[in-house]
Design a binder for these strands. Structure first.
Lengths: 248, 248
DNA sequence: AGTCATTTCGAACATCTAGTCAATATGAGA
DNA sequence: TCTCATATTGACTAGATGTTCGAAATGACT
């Protein structure tokens, strides 16, 4: 019998074979179900994560180059190198993909701005830090800047968190030559335009400090105050850098 | 013979009639051609102008509400209330229609800014005047603002003239805390964002003077200088208004 | 080498969109 | 009322785009 996986039953008016392997599988169903299904799901999930990331990456590559509204599903799947049907196993629509890109951006915003929010108490310095971090990121990663600029046009509400924090800081600013709401829009306007400019790579020479200084003056600080805030900001950055150097 | 419009010629192996009316028309061809064709063309041109304006108007209405890139020919002809074929007798493509809208915008820019360019010599005051005129227009015509904002995103090169003039003024500004190119982008960023904000009708209360003041401070004027320029600007505006009142 | 839960694939279908063109409408003048 | 140069019309074609779904591929495990 050994070595033969098949058992024969006959004499009941029936004649059939039973694959013993199947019988065994059926017998061990509960263990197999637990082990196999969990592992299988894990494997699948890993594959899904990779493909999904490809799609998001493709969307970012496309959004960096042209209007969000002009990108099609075909564009995305071609850029990602996957089949069309695959897109729809990950996203219901282009809108959902765009939302995913927006979410990644918002997360990168938070990573950029959170340090300053926890470490700095003075409103003007917090604003300066945030703007500086934003501008540095845009300066060092033109594609990020381009995508952020395009998303800000197509999906303005996704920056609502930043706006809220910034408005809060502006309201705690001393002096009241203009409403905090207006100052907010002025700062946001400058920042978004810097995203566009840096994203397109124009502006031969670029001085981040000059931008921060302009923003501070625009929201009501005197040139002297702006200079002072900028000095503190640079000192903090230098300290951070020397700490990093010391640590490494 | 009289009363018979037909002349008969026979005896030459031929037999045919000539319609004298046709002969007369042919005889008077040059006069008819001049009178009829010129008038006919004029009538046609008037009709064309109206229909073309409808199409441009429809495009503006659509551009005010959503991204230029998302508007289709079908959208335009439906909004304009004309047939699809009509679109193509006026424009080669959507791009051509968009260019027409851009041209109208550029013309409105010039009408807005030309007075200040000829009447004002001082760079800071020229800049302030231009910004103020722009902002007032956006404030009083939200749809204009929305269209201009959308076009600035889709068709950035159409504002090149304004940018050139503005850069020129910025380069003649005294004091050099930052490059004129950077100041240009800061001013443009604020202006475009104001177009967006006013085009969407958010910003409950709005103070145009505060925006101009913020711009002047952002490009390097001290609060005192900015205040002085603003005072001159308002004085000039008041004078103009009183002149208008006197004239009327 | 065989199994199979899961993902991926791409052909197929429906809809949308750009662009064309023969037919029709317009309207001032005869 | 009739004419006719011109503008307008809208059905039509071809191709782009969105969406679905059964078939094929994947890959860890036995």
């Amino acid at each position: 019998m050994q070595g033969n996986r098949y058992a024969s039953l006959s004499g009941f008016g029936l004649d059939f074979q039973v694959n013993m392997t199947y019988l065994k599988v059926e017998f061990e169903e509960s263990r197999m179900a637990n082990v196999n299904l969990i592992r299988r799901a894990e494997i699948g999930r890993e594959k899904r994560v990779r493909t999904r990331a490809q799609l998001v990456e493709a969307a970012k590559a496309l959004f960096a180059g042209r209007a969000v509204e002009s990108v099609t599903v075909d564009d995305v799947v071609q850029e990602a190198g996957v089949a069309k049907g695959t897109f729809y196993t990950h996203f219901d629509s282009l809108e959902a993909l765009t939302a995913a890109v927006a979410e990644e951006l918002v997360q990168s915003f938070d990573e950029l701005l959170q340090p300053g929010r926890t470490a700095i108490a003075e409103p003007a310095l917090r604003i300066a830090f945030g703007c500086r971090a934003f501008i540095d990121k845009a300066f060092n990663d033109a594609r990020w800047a381009a995508v952020a600029a395009r998303m800000s046009a197509a999906n303005p509400q996704s920056g609502e968190n930043i706006r809220r924090h910034l408005l809060d800081d502006l309201q705690h600013l001393s002096g009241e030559p203009a409403s905090a709401e207006l100052k907010l829009e002025i700062v946001v306007g400058i920042m978004i335009h810097m995203l566009r400019v840096l994203g397109e790579g124009r502006l031969s020479s670029f001085d981040p400090d000059a931008v921060v200084s302009a923003i501070l003056r625009a929201i009501g600080l005197s040139p002297q105050q702006a200079g002072s805030v900028l000095k503190h900001l640079l000192a903090a950055a230098g300290m951070e850098k020397s700490l990093q150097t010391t640590a490494s």
